[in-house]
Design a binder for these strands. Structure first.
Lengths: 207, 207, 207, 207
DNA sequence: TATGAATGAGGATTCATTCAT
DNA sequence: CATGAATGAATCCTCATTCAT
């Protein structure tokens, strides 16, 4: 169940990928602006640079576009994280760096991430699991890093705590984008990272 | 700008309130099930117990329903919190209790809160500020409590830290509902509160 | 299974009947001209004297229109026949009159009958049986008349022969409309009736 | 006006014939299943074993396919009849055999014949006459046989009666396929032929 | 006030046909 | 000759909103 196939009438695999990338790019910017429901398929086609007929050569339903968009965003986020988190050696310092890096990714991709989280609920019962799975994967990446710290004796945490903290980190990263109207007026990204790290490591009472 | 007026053709104030409450109740359960966009005005009228014609005696557009729903949910959440947070005396213990109470409210109202956050983006540029303002208010309520702790010397925090922590608390409460598919399978509410409090107060490294 | 219900959003039964009659009238003349598939729902609405939205208050799908049309034509044909065939007393003379009358009905309604037989195949698996049933009924009406002649000793026929002859009569009546391009150029209706009766009663070799 | 030319871009006559035969075969089975309108040109191409582009090298419009199909079916029916009817010597016995043979052909080709009669109406004003002409030819073949019987003194019929009877025979043959849902459940083909012959020759009152 | 029939702009999707390779 | 990607007009159907009763 790693990927949900989206049917294309066109056979040339290379072309399918190319056109879908055009599509995703066009769709993201439209979804960003007006949301999935308020965006018409014609607008998507136009923003993608081809006709409505051509659009439907590469998907079966409008919802397919949303799925492709979500799928693609997750893949981008994950790729950017993986490179980083894989190298951590299980020290608190590298955990901190991992978190900071994640927050930076979430800053750069905040539009995409916002789109994904706000529209994912419009996916059919059929497609949703594939997207949730990706969210789980992201949490897992942090779990792994934290667990390595535990194994190294740098932290003393139960499994449940590890999972919980991983969720917390992921959510706090998303929060930067979701609450930009509040946070980004008050804090710079670096400040936000600093505050988050401080709170996460030392709690309210400070170190 | 405390409330945005939603026009009603009907003059009898008492009736307007009664009908709108019917409306909100019906709409919330529909939005919960299928989202704002997939819900039709006819369905809302039916779920509210009156005809489509009558529905439009109490609102001007479909979006008005969404605004009323969001507005109402916020009011409920705030009412339930205020009672509690107002009494805190500025001790860490009472802060903890306030947080626990907030999490419980978010648990009980998770469906409504979910609806509100997922659909609020569909509000027009016109209505959005009124809703965001309420979100600010909620954050402020926690800020006040924390600030009282600072004033009492129980905590040493800058203003920016106070605001940041208030945001964090609010978000972590919402997280319980948003990520229920992950969290509520693993933790009980009490466990979740325990973990959150522990992390918030002492950080990753424990007390 | 006497009637297949076609859903209407409008509740006023009287109005539903009135609007559907407008609809059937408009649709028949369009189907006559260009067939079911080449007729658009907008054209049907226009020909019926109301808007496309209103059309869909009285049906669910385009196919419903076809079903209503077929259903209505059958009902008209049957009503006109029944009056007549019911009174026959089981003499050859009254059988002849019944046949002549049937041919006259088929002449007057040839457009409708043509439409029905040419488009009925476009009905869904769901609706088809209801229409076939009516065709059976028509055959049965003739079977009854013939059987009465047999009972009276005017004819000596097995059951199978009776059924077969009834089918033959029905088909020859339809033939007048179906092959109008050939027959109606050569024969008047009365001539046609005369020839058919003669052939049916006495065969090729004449009396 | 013996044949209506259907334009092909391809010059090689042999190839044109070969490809069109593939096309007709594929199209008949599709039309049988879902009718002309519900069949897409892509499906026809696929069923024919070549691409949509190639299909359009051999026809100009979708309707051309229908014309070719109808034309081909008529040719087949006529070929099979002609062999037979040409040899009749103008006796009642050979007329009977001719009729029986025609009914057998109509039995074997009932699918094709059904398709042709149900879809022919979709032919344009342009193509229809060519198809009707073939129908006339078929009637003529029977007229000829009957006329020979008259010339031989085996039957006493006017010209109008001859034409009328020829039509009747043709229609009764088609009836076997059209009303298969009723007739073929009750009669075997041989029984049906027997009943038809008896009725045609002796009429209702028997010999 | 309450009702529900009427409206028609708007949206998703299909499919015959073309044309560059 | 063969292919199949591209096109966009055409079509079915929905649904927010209005208004006469």
């Amino acid at each position: 169940m790693n990927k949900r196939e989206v049917h294309a009438s066109v056979k040339d695999e290379r072309l399918v990928i190319k056109r879908r990338n055009q599509m995703i790019k066009g769709a993201v910017s439209l979804f960003k602006e007006k949301g999935f429901h308020r965006t018409t398929t014609r607008e998507i086609a136009k923003a993608s640079g081809f006709s409505i007929g051509t659009l439907y050569e590469y998907i079966r339903t409008k919802e397919d576009v949303l799925y492709l968009v979500c799928d693609s965003i997750y893949d981008q986020v994950r790729d950017r994280l993986q490179k980083d988190l894989d190298q951590t050696e299980g020290t608190l310092e590298s955990l901190k760096l991992g978190i900071a890096n994640y927050f930076k990714v979430m800053d750069e991709m905040q539009d995409e991430v916002l789109v994904m989280y706000q529209e994912a609920k419009s996916l059919s019962k059929d497609a949703l699991p594939y997207v949730l799975k990706k969210e789980f994967e992201m949490v897992s990446m942090f779990e792994d890093v934290i667990r390595r710290c535990v194994e190294n004796g740098e932290l003393a945490l139960t499994d449940k705590q590890v999972e919980f903290i991983a969720h917390s980190i992921v959510v706090q990263g998303q929060m930067w984008g979701f609450r930009r109207w509040a946070l980004q007026k008050v804090y710079s990204l670096d400040e936000y990272i600093e505050l988050q790290t401080e709170l996460l490591f030392n709690g309210i009472r400070g170190g």
